[in-house]
Design a protein around this nucleic acid. Sequence first.
RNA 1: GGAGUCGGCCGGACAGUCGCUGCCGGAUUUUAAUCCGGGAGAGGAAAGUCCGGGCUCCAUAGGGCAGAGUGCCAGGUAACGCCUGGGCGGCGUGAGCCGACGGAAAGUGCAGCAGAGAGUAGACCGCCUAAGCAGCUUAGGCUGCCGGCAAGGGUGAAAGGGUGCGGUAAGAGCGCACCGCGCGACUGGUAACAGUUCGUGGCAUGGUAAACCCCACUCGGAGCAAGACCAAAUAGGAACCCAUUGGUGUGGCCCGCACUUGGGUUCGGGUAGGUUGCUUGAGGCGUAUGGUGACAUGCGUCCUAGAGGAAUGACUGUCCUCGACAGAACCCGGCUUACAGGCCGACUCCCUCC
RNA 2: GCUCAUGUAGCUCAGGGGUAGAGCACACCCUUGGUAAGGGUGAGGUCGACGGUUCAAUUCCGUCCAUGAGCU
Length: 128
Amino acid sequence: MAHQGFPRGLRILTAGEYRHVFDNASFKVHGKGLLALACPNTLGHARVGLVFSKKNVRRAVDRNRLKRLTRESIRLGQHRLPAVDIVVLSKRGAGELDNDTVQRQLHGMWRRLEQEAKRHLAATQSIA
RNA sequence: GGAGUCGGCCGGACAGUCGCUGCCGGAUUUUAAUCCGGGAGAGGAAAGUCCGGGCUCCAUAGGGCAGAGUGCCAGGUAACGCCUGGGCGGCGUGAGCCGACGGAAAGUGCAGCAGAGAGUAGACCGCCUAAGCAGCUUAGGCUGCCGGCAAGGGUGAAAGGGUGCGGUAAGAGCGCACCGCGCGACUGGUAACAGUUCGUGGCAUGGUAAACCCCACUCGGAGCAAGACCAAAUAGGAACCCAUUGGUGUGGCCCGCACUUGGGUUCGGGUAGGUUGCUUGAGGCGUAUGGUGACAUGCGUCCUAGAGGAAUGACUGUCCUCGACAGAACCCGGCUUACAGGCCGACUCCCUCC
RNA sequence: GCUCAUGUAGCUCAGGGGUAGAGCACACCCUUGGUAAGGGUGAGGUCGACGGUUCAAUUCCGUCCAUGAGCU
């Protein structure tokens, strides 16, 4: 079985790294209640950061639940993801979604992200 | 059987797989880190931030003014605006529940509209015509004036004790009885307060203090983004001007205290990080003693989250009553607010049966 | 996490115990050949919610609920 851990190396840690992703977001993937920004990195694996604001998701219980679900989804799907830094944001009303819906949304978002990243890589390589 | 009151407790359970964060042991390794094993890992409200404290810095938190808070009495407590017991008032058939519950005879203010009058009471409707004056009249009496009244009506949130009898021209604490009220004494109680056995005053003291205020008591300011330490990029500057019984340090001010040269403009440089504070505590559980109780003391026993974009989850299976409100961020004690459902104990009322 | 501020007409704001107001906007009328401007009339409010104090609360007090700001 493949490694499925989720150590700190797979996360975006500092404010500077977050800023880099926001300023150089090469792709955006929208889901219901969620939004993912991503830009390529040189680490050879994906990293992820979460932004769930109090303004969009009012209760702490819902914020924690969404973050756990997102992390779980990343952890289980990390080997399919390209080498990009991802920031997942919440949109208004994300707290009303149930667990099944959130998981389906995240699954679909990773698939689209994979395709876009493949296309982006091909484009940059053809330019080079 | 039904309805209800109070107090306490619980807040899905079990197993497996994959993960997350500390701790302990071991291994690899220069450190960092990685791996293996073990064990721990959100709440009764973690919430709101409404009070109180610990802790940290400012002086060891000191004096005065200003300001804020609390407000029946006694106790508990580290402290409180909390809790316990008692008093008083209100609600309820009752068990019980609720109450910012000091002072309005220290002072100042406020009360729209309505109403005669809103605080040294008043005369709109009304009641009276005894005394005095005038007129009419044989007299009795009638009318008017001068007046008297606070009973009845009406207004209002509120109209200056209540009922009865006497009294009177009509009335009125004007007098008396009872009730209420004030003051004093006595008795009970630590006290708040109560009791009327007693005396006395004679009806004064309307409401509002979550209006100003008075009285008593309490309160210094800031908050873990407090603060401490390590390391060190850059800088430890330059020029000019001003003030030096001055400046800075903390809250509104003054005193006091501590430190000390301080401030302005221009130019130049810069505004990485890490560690700690960080969980053993006014601690939990059991038990004994004291106390009506809150609680206190002694003994035994246990260690029970500590992250740093932030850890408790996901999936699978079984069971049931099919799972509410909701997620620690320095820590405690309270209050308030949210909450599916369930359990235990004590008590009250109603109905029925024996 | 901590510390504050604000909720009044569709919008921007006054009012700090006694009937809720101003400007803009809205409707109708006048003015004009018509429109704008101007003038007049009018409608529109659980004064964020719930309790309490008071005879009386938008105002005073308490508790909640929203919204906004400041402190890394």
